[in-house]
Computed example of a mutant assay.
Amino acid sequence: MAGLTQLTQLDLMDTAVSDLCALAGLTQLTQLSLSGTAVSDLSALAGLTQLTQLYLMDTSVSDLSALAGLTQLTQLDLSGTAVSDLSALAGLTQLTQLYLSRYVRQRSERFGRAA
């Protein structure tokens, strides 16, 4: 993927992808779907600062710290993930759509309402 530096959209949904290191150089990406993959480590995405849409539904992701600098994100889907701490998203002021469906009850209670 190293030669695809102008790529703006990539859909890897339901593929066998688990390692995102090959995506680190795709700095023009604005949309990325990793839903249904075996991805758990998002650190390779930290430099993809042009991302506006990121779909992580049904992945093994639990740590969002790598997303803290993705300030252009407007849509983020965390449905069906193991995420329990959303504090890394605090600085994402452009975020307009956040999907948390199938979030377990104890996590929902942290936001002041039961699931």
Rank of each mutant, 00 (worst) to 15 (best):
D11M: 01
S33A: 13
L76H: 03
T8L: 00
A44P: 13
L12A: 04
S18P: 05
A82H: 01
L54I: 07
R105E: 15
R113Q: 14
A90G: 06
L7T: 03
R105A: 15
D19S: 07
L10I: 05
M1N: 13
V61W: 06
S84K: 01
Y55S: 13
L29I: 02
S87H: 06
T81N: 00
A22W: 09
L29M: 09
S40D: 06
A16S: 14
A82I: 08
L76Q: 02
L56K: 09
Q53E: 11
E109H: 06
R107C: 01
T27Y: 04
V17H: 10
G36R: 10
S101C: 10
T30I: 00
A88P: 12
T49M: 03
Y103L: 14
D41A: 13
L54T: 05
S62R: 01
S84E: 05
G80S: 02
S33R: 12
L64C: 02
S79V: 05
L23T: 07
L98D: 12
G3Y: 00
L56V: 06
A88D: 04
M1L: 15
G47D: 02
L20A: 06
T71S: 10
L10Q: 04
C21G: 14
Q28S: 03
L64N: 05
Q53T: 09
D41T: 10
M57I: 11
Q97E: 15
S60G: 15
L10A: 03
Q75Y: 03
S62F: 09
L10G: 05
S87D: 08
M13D: 12
L51R: 02
L78S: 00
T8H: 07
G36K: 10
A66Q: 00
T71I: 14
M57S: 15
L42A: 02
L4N: 08
L92Y: 07
R105H: 11
D11Q: 08
R110Y: 08
L34D: 06
G47H: 08
S18I: 07
Q28P: 01
A38K: 11
L86V: 09
M1W: 11
L4V: 01
A16E: 14
Q106I: 10
D63K: 02
T30L: 04
A2M: 05
L23Y: 02
Q97D: 12
L64A: 04
V61T: 01
L4M: 15
Q106W: 15
D41R: 10
L12V: 10
Q6G: 09
A44R: 00
T49W: 05
S108I: 01
L10H: 00
L34M: 08
S43T: 08
D63T: 03
E109Q: 15
S43C: 15
T74P: 02
L92R: 04
Q72L: 01
T93G: 05
V83S: 06
L42K: 05
T71N: 10
A115E: 14
V17P: 08
L48H: 04
G3F: 06
L100I: 07
V39G: 03
L92F: 11
L51E: 08
A114D: 14
V61M: 09
L70N: 08
M1E: 11
L92S: 07
S43Y: 10
T8R: 12
L95D: 08
S108W: 15
M57D: 12
D14H: 13
T81A: 06
L12T: 03
L48Y: 00
A82T: 04
L34T: 00
A24K: 10
D41L: 12
G47N: 09
L26M: 04
T49Q: 10
L56T: 05
S65G: 10
L23D: 11
T5I: 11
S35C: 01
R113I: 11
D11R: 01
